[in-house]
């Protein structure tokens, strides 16, 4: 009797767990397995992938999301952050970087919104050089201080207060790769907003 009661208990416990797993992970994942990549969605280049790994390493995802909400749900559309994101946009992403915070702005289309490599490098070196009031951490370890820029290297143009004495600041391969990744974040191509992600706005009101 004791044994049967324990058996039923553990069976129920396992069933409750398994149902949840299947219900909110397994089934959506199976449905999404059938979607195809939009033709304009490019695979990441080696450099962009390297940059993406630095995005993960420095924990950018703790303050920046990569998902755009639909019309009628928040102000993403009015802020021109791009069309609502769909599952197909993320087919090549591992680990996913959807994010849960917007301490800083959404980056799903940062490559379309801010196209200047120089701006991104300055911003990474010290965000307050280009955005007054920013609370983003500076990333000077992605840069090198040298007496002069080498061949093919371009030094950052820094205000005197931040420039090291008699030295120049040049981006490392890591900084360049990270910027290459950020510039690749451009999902402005059209997609059908159907199938897997029906419009949240429609069901909401």
């Amino acid at each position: 009797m004791m044994f049967i009661r324990s058996f039923v208990f553990f069976l129920g416990v396992l069933a409750a767990f398994a149902l949840g797993w299947i219900g909110i992970v397994g089934v959506p994942d199976m449905m999404l397995a059938r979607i195809e990549a939009p033709p304009e969605l490019k695979r990441y280049t080696a450099e962009q992938l390297y940059g993406r790994s630095i995005y993960v390493r420095e924990g950018c995802l703790y303050c920046h999301s990569q998902q755009v909400r639909p019309e009628g749900f928040g102000a993403d559309q009015a802020r021109f952050w791009g069309r609502p994101s769909v599952p197909a946009d993320y087919l090549y992403d591992k680990p996913h970087l959807l994010g849960t915070m917007r301490t800083g702005p959404d980056l799903f289309n940062i490559g379309a919104r801010q196209t200047s490599e120089e701006w991104h490098l300055l911003h990474l070196y010290n965000p307050r050089l280009v955005t007054k009031g920013s609370i983003m951490p500076p990333h000077p370890w992605l840069f090198e201080e040298k007496p002069t820029a080498g061949p093919g290297e371009e030094a950052l143009v820094l205000p005197d207060s931040l420039a090291p004495a008699r030295k120049v600041v040049v981006p490392t391969a890591e900084a360049k790769a990270l910027v290459a990744y950020l510039l690749s974040l451009n999902h402005t191509y059209p997609v059908s907003q159907g199938a897997a992600s029906d419009d949240t706005a429609k069901t909401r009101r």
Binding site: V25, D29, H96
Partner: peptide, 9 residues
């Protein structure tokens, strides 16, 4: 998992 499926997971 991968992509959005991984986000669900």
């Amino acid at each position: 998992y991968q992509g959005v499926g991984e986000a669900a997971m």
